[in-house]
Nucleic acid binder design. Structure first.
Length: 122
DNA sequence: CGGCTGACGATGA
DNA sequence: GTCATCGCCAGCC
């Protein structure tokens, strides 16, 4: 119960909770895990999780709303296509209403934290 | 065990 | 406001 065994596992868990039509940033996830500066590590976790289709990595973008990880999908248009299917408008690899559809795990996961569904260090 | 990696983020010029 | 640089932490070689 203490600290998360696998940082990656926590990342996946959070990413899976991202609702359709919403997006979040690597830094936000890292911050939830108590490692605000580990934003890069979060992205690296996705890279390793590319084999897990259950993880909507396309809903995770950088702070600027840019599809920085699109190049890592099967096809370059894969990520953008998935986002479009969810009603997210992407132009030139950038989410237009990023700020509006931004899904803040720090707030949304408060309930999960109470139910011990997600644990994070202090 | 030491060093590099990396789908980021913030700060400075 | 845009471009360039440093720092960050956890995993992997």
């Amino acid at each position: 119960m203490p600290l998360p065994k696998n940082f990656y596992d926590d990342v996946y868990k959070i990413v899976k909770k991202i609702p359709s039509g919403r997006v979040t940033s690597y830094g936000a996830i890292a911050e939830v895990l108590g490692a605000k500066g580990a934003s890069r590590t979060v992205g690296y976790a996705m890279n390793k999780s590319h084999a897990s289709p259950s993880i909507p990595a396309h809903r995770v973008v950088n702070r600027a709303g840019l599809l920085t990880g699109k190049h890592h999908f099967g096809s370059i248009n894969e990520m953008e296509s998935l986002l479009n299917k969810e009603g997210i408008r992407v132009i030139n690899n950038k989410i237009q209403n990023f700020q509006e559809i931004f899904w803040n795990p720090i707030i949304e996961l408060q309930k999960d934290i109470e139910t011990s569904e997600i644990e994070f260090p202090e």
